[in-house]
Design a protein around this nucleic acid. Structure first.
Length: 461
RNA sequence: GUGGGCGUAGCUCAGUCGGUUAGAGCGCAGGUUUGUGGUACCUGAGGUCGCGGGUUCAAUUCCCGUCGCCCACCCCA
């Protein structure tokens, strides 16, 4: 293989037609649901200025940014520096998520946007991670966000929208874990842990259901440098990890006793209670689980945080939360915001594994055969007539090929019908139509053939 | 960035305790069937065994390096 590899770049994928069509159907459904909640589309560039992206996601995130090299003289100048680093040589980066670009948009176009800006965006993002099961370097996120309100109705609506998507996809098994950044702050403060250690501690706590209580205790002490007493205090405040929506009230009561006397705790508990109350009765209601162990790594969250989890996958399949300070990083006029991202790649993967994609629609309704090269105008005319009747029509391109080959092609593509127009049929003013599913073949008058097929298409009534 | 596994036909993989023409299934092409697919049977094409170096009379096989893929960790969707 001295030739150039034909594989896609590491962590990136090609989608052949059947899979591409499947993805589009799922995206269309998501779009439909998002629109039904009043969200509007937004499109932003795949690349952003590096400064826009840096410092928004935490150190880990900065590392995972795909950076784009400077060009021409700028690059030469950068190369001539002492010992140029990545950020000296690059001035652009591929977007890492859709939230930071949204914040930039809001900061830039405040005057042109409605008072409450509800946008959705379904688009690829890039992360220079090492690929793994369900993890890619290029993947599509499906975001909904509301900018401009601090009301918990936003959290409730956003959670409902994504629940509705998952329910309509038939993705049965999932939970939405719910926590609050300020609740975590209150607990860390009450445990007497230094603020500098908080982010590390949160990451460890978040792993409880994966690695178990003892490992969490060990990691907190040995890797996060938290004293034994503080660890004990923290874990007793957190209590047992809830796994059912029915436990929510009990969890909230318990947390109120633990940190209700602190301002952060009080605000967080009030807001969480509201989210549950507002979501009650909607699709998200039975899925929400108050989980004091939920942390989430992205640095910009300030209020309620969510994460969708499934027993079928170890990572998260969606996440989000409130980020009231992010817009303020781009402009003096700060604006509150809250939103959510669906990890559609992982959802598609799990649905695929569960065998949810059967009965894929055929790429066309009918193949028009080509008797021989001289007959091409006749077949082209028939194809036009069938298209005018509303059919998706494929014309066999090479007239020299045997009927068997033409039928084999139609079968291979899964087309339900083949329309044959040869000298015999032309003379009789008919078209021979074969149903490839049943094997039946009939002669249909030329003028009726379009409607005849339309009425017999699979899945139509 | 760390650890483990794997690179042999278009695809999924077998095989070689170092030895002469490297195999299977699927797919592809042709035929049995000069107006008809999906089943069956027959025939055929297709491989510098990832790349580079080393050991050896001899390397696809052993050793080293390198690149790529997969899985796990970290972190995340």
């Amino acid at each position: 293989m001295s030739q150039v590899s034909t594989k896609p770049a590491s962590g990136m994928r090609d989608f052949l037609p059947a899979e591409a069509a499947r993805r589009r159907r799922v995206f269309a459904l998501i779009e439909e649901v998002y629109q039904s909640y009043g969200f509007e589309p937004l499109e932003t560039p795949t690349m952003e200025r590096l400064d826009t992206l840096l410092g928004k996601y935490g150190d880990e995130g900065d590392q995972l940014l795909f950076k784009v090299m400077k060009r021409a003289q700028k690059l030469e100048r950068a190369l001539n520096r002492e010992s140029p680093g990545e950020t000296d040589l690059a001035d652009l980066g591929l977007r890492y998520d859709l939230t930071v670009p949204l914040a930039r948009i809001v900061a830039q176009y405040q005057n042109d946007l409605p008072r409450y800006f509800k946008r959705y965006q379904i688009a690829p993002v890039w992360r220079a991670d090492r690929p793994q099961k369900g993890r890619y370097r290029e993947f599509v996120q499906c975001d909904v966000d509301v900018v401009g309100s601090t009301s918990m109705t936003v959290e409730a609506e956003v959670a409902s929208a994504l629940s509705e998507v998952l329910d309509r996809l038939g993705f049965g098994e999932y939970r939405i874990h719910l926590n609050h950044r300020r609740l975590l702050s209150a607990m860390l403060e009450a445990s007497g842990i230094a603020e500098a250690k908080w982010s590390g501690v949160l990451i460890t706590i978040d792993k409880l259901d994966k690695v178990g209580r003892n490992e969490v205790i060990r990691e907190l002490q040995e890797e996060r440098g938290v004293g034994r007493e503080a660890v004990d205090r923290l874990l007793s405040l957190l209590g047992a990890q809830p796994t059912l929506a029915e436990e929510n009230q009990g969890t909230l009561d318990r947390l109120r006793e633990a940190v209700g006397h602190l301002e952060d705790g009080q605000v967080a508990l009030k807001e969480l209670t509201e989210v549950l109350r507002f979501a009650d009765g909607g699709p998200a209601g039975p899925r929400l689980i108050v989980d004091p162990y939920l942390a989430r790594g992205l640095a910009y969250y300030t209020g309620p945080i969510f994460e969708i989890r499934s027993d079928e996958f170890s990572g998260s399949i969606g996440g989000g939360g409130r980020y009231d300070e992010l817009v303020g990083m781009f402009t003096k006029q700060s604006l509150p915001a809250c939103g959510f991202s669906l990890g559609i790649e992982r959802i598609l993967m799990l649905m695929e594994e569960a065998g949810k994609f059967t009965d894929e629609p055929a790429p066309a309704d009918v193949l028009v055969t080509l008797w021989d090269p001289d007959f091409t105008p006749n077949s082209l005319a028939l194809a036009r007539e069938l298209r005018a009747a509303g059919l998706r029509v494929d014309l066999y391109p090479d007239g020299g090929d045997k009927m068997g080959k033409q039928f084999g092609y139609a079968d291979e593509r899964g087309l339900p019908f083949v329309a044959i127009l040869a000298p015999r049929e032309l003379e009789d003013g008919v078209v021979a139509v074969k149903n490839l599913k049943t094997g039946d073949q009939e002669k249909v008058p030329r003028g009726e053939v379009g409607r005849w097929i339309v009425e017999r298409l699979p899945g139509r009534s």
